[in-house]
Design a protein around this nucleic acid. Structure first.
Lengths: 194, 194
DNA sequence: AGAAATAATTGATTTAGATCAATCGGTTTT
DNA sequence: AAAACCGATTGATCTAAATCAATTATTTCT
């Protein structure tokens, strides 16, 4: 359960055994069954979560009842409503499991304490957030400047793995497209191949 | 020049005088005239920049020649093409001054050294990136789920200051709208007031 | 295995916002 | 002060993608 976790951390920072033991003590392992909720929109998001196994999705539902996927979190990824986790506001997203999943969670209080006790974790999260920021920025640009076709091609190129694992209607939602539009795009792309 | 800089840092972390002196030594002050470029698309973005005075914009130009504003950086904000700065890729954006500006810049090498010499800066940037990530995420949601009207109302509420300072066509670009659409939205909003 | 629920496809229609085009007002520039 | 330039406004038209609706395919459940 912790193997992939430390593997992930050690891609960004070097840790000795005593640091690892200490870090471990701050996290709580949990299991989620498929369709089980980790966070419900409108409630505080009390955990920052590392996914060891499985796949979660974070999404919100608008007034018209449409689901908008904000993030897919497969194993090796972090997920949370960061705004809610780091402030005292309620969560804008719901987060649930798309597959049976193993996760490691940390509360806000524990997180702050971890940063003080293991300062190198400030560096780890600095690097993590730095990379997320770059990725999120790319998505924002894509959302503002690309048409439907380009958005699809972009994810096809950059997240081929995700496409295999996620139902098409949710992928469409993630891209800000309707399911019908994505279906038609796929058809045209396949025709082009022949 | 450094007053607003340290004021800004000290909102997130506590610094003693010797740390401040050390930090200062890593940054280089520069001045930009209105319309002067800090970064040109397609060239490496060698600086991470803090704006002490003035206003910069980061944008890219697509194949059709349309400008897409990614960020406005007024005094107290950081700007850069983070991807280019932290990797060895060239910049996707151009960054230039919309007003005469005073800036503080740091190179990537200096940045890495600063993180090692003043570990609390890892914490500072962790907090900075953490907040940027939350903001960027909001913009992405807005971009995917709101219509033109809602996008305008959103920025009207959350960045009233920016609206006063930035030409309307650039604001439109920042929101991913055409200048004409924003003009019409504004007209309707004003009519509604009466 | 059969029923029920969910997802994907396809077609027809609608619409929000882009694009094209012209005019007007205000700044810079020379 | 005239010229050139830039930004905002307004109207007319176009279009990409959403929406609505029906059908088919695929999982999931019992």
């Amino acid at each position: 359960m912790y193997d992939i976790f430390f593997e992930h951390l050690e891609k960004k920072v070097q840790l000795n055994e005593s640091e690892k033991e200490l870090i471990k003590s701050f996290f709580t392992p949990k299991k989620l069954k498929k369709r089980q909720f980790l966070v419900v929109e409108g409630h505080p998001c009390i955990y920052l979560t590392f996914v060891s196994k499985g796949l979660l999705k974070a999404y919100n539902v608008d007034e018209k009842g449409n689901e908008h996927i904000n993030q897919f979190a497969p194993e090796g990824w972090w997920t949370s409503d960061m705004n809610s986790f780091f402030s005292d506001e309620v969560s804008f997203y719901s987060i649930d499991a798309m597959e049976d999943s193993d996760i490691l969670v940390i509360s806000n209080k524990e997180f702050e304490e971890l940063m003080l006790k293991v300062p190198i974790m400030d560096r780890y999260f600095r690097l993590l957030f730095q990379n997320s920021l770059i990725t999120k920025e790319r998505r924002l640009i894509s959302s503002n400047t690309h048409n439907a076709e380009e958005k699809y091609q972009h994810i096809l190129k950059n997240n081929p793995d995700l496409i295999k694992r996620v139902p098409q209607n949710l992928l469409a939602s993630y891209l800000g497209l309707s399911a019908e539009t994505l279906s038609r795009l796929k058809k045209n792309a396949t025709l082009g191949e022949k």
